[in-house]
Write a protein that binds this DNA or RNA. Structure first.
Lengths: 194, 194
DNA sequence: GTTCTGCATTAACAAAAGATAAGAACGTCA
DNA sequence: TGACGTTCTTATCTTTTGTTAATGCAGAAC
């Protein structure tokens, strides 16, 4: 139940067995169905979740009620509406499961306690953030450097499982284009291969 | 000379006077001219710089030798080619000054020493990264949500000084468009206002 | 002052994406 | 089985951007 979390923890920090237990014990196991909103629009996000199984999309709402993907999460990632979580402000980001999910939930209060009582928590979070920031920079780089077609090709090369697990209109907005345009791009690629 | 750094430090962490001195003493003051490359393409970045005065652009090189902006730095920000810095790998990001700059340079070795000897360094860096990550997420959100014209308007609303300090072709690629297209957008906006 | 160079603008055309609507494929549920 | 809803596809048209090239402008070098 905590295997993947443990693995992930060890990838960044060398914990003492006692520290490891202390950290893990701060999490609460929780199962949620598909299409479940972990964070609603306008709600203050007060927890960070480790995604043990399943997948989740982060999206924004446009003026005309459309949903535009901002990030796609799969197993092994920590997820939260970070801006809301940090500032305790109403979230403009919605977090919604795309499959039934197993989560390990860390409430903000407990994280703050860990920061004080278990200093390696600081190191762990810093390293997680470093990785996520570098990742975000790469996404930005892809937006300024590549055309939508290239972004799509890079995406299916880097994370082919996303294609199976997320509907295409979700992938399309994640790439910054409309579902119609993604469909055309896919067709162009199909023709190319012939 | 260290005023802005000190201010920035205090915004995130409550330091003891002694800790503050210890942290600041790890930095080396350095002046560089305009158009100076702090990190070359393919070079391993081994330091983090605090930008005390001046401005810097981060850019990528395309296959045909074009420069595409990935980020624009102004006073008060920490800059480095983070992926290269962390992995000690050749950088695909180039850092080049756009004005004469005053830098406070923190070599990687010294940062690692601080991480061990001055635990608040961990807290400070984590909080810096949180802020930068949230910022990067907003940039991504703007790419998936807004049209180039809106991105430009938001940019000049949020950071009007960038317009004065960076040439327009640099701003254009930062917005993910060509200089020609930005010129057209600016014209459209001019016509609108009449 | 004159030349040179780099940058912003404008124009004209090609290529791609957005918007809208209509049809096809698929699973769900009565 | 059949009706419904959702998603993906396809078609048409409009809008925008990319591309290339020409023009204008201003600062730097001589």
């Amino acid at each position: 139940m905590f295997d993947l979390l443990q693995q992930t923890m060890r990838r960044y920090v060398a914990w003492q067995p006692k520290e490891e237990r202390q950290f893990i014990e701060a999490f609460v196991y929780r199962e949620v169905p598909s299409q479940y909103r972990l964070v609603e629009y306008g709600e203050v996000c007060r927890e960070i979740c480790f995604l043990n199984k399943g997948c989740v999309r982060l999206y924004y709402l446009t003026d005309d009620g459309e949903e535009v993907s901002g990030f796609l999460f799969t197993e092994g990632l920590f997820l939260s509406a970070l801006e809301s979580f940090l500032a305790e402000s109403p979230s403009v980001q919605v977090l919604e499961t795309v499959e039934p999910c197993e989560l390990l939930v860390l409430p903000k209060m407990k994280l703050e306690k860990l920061y004080e009582e278990l200093p390696k928590t600081q190191v762990f979070m810093r390293k997680l953030l470093e990785e996520r920031f570098v990742n975000a920079q790469k996404v930005v780089a892809s937006f300024v450097l590549d055309k939508p077609e290239e972004r799509y090709l890079k995406l299916i090369a880097a994370q082919p499982d996303l294609l199976q697990r997320f509907p295409q209109h979700v992938l399309a907005t994640y790439l910054g284009i409309t579902p119609v345009s993604l469909s055309r791009i896919r067709k162009r690629i199909r023709e190319m291969k012939k």
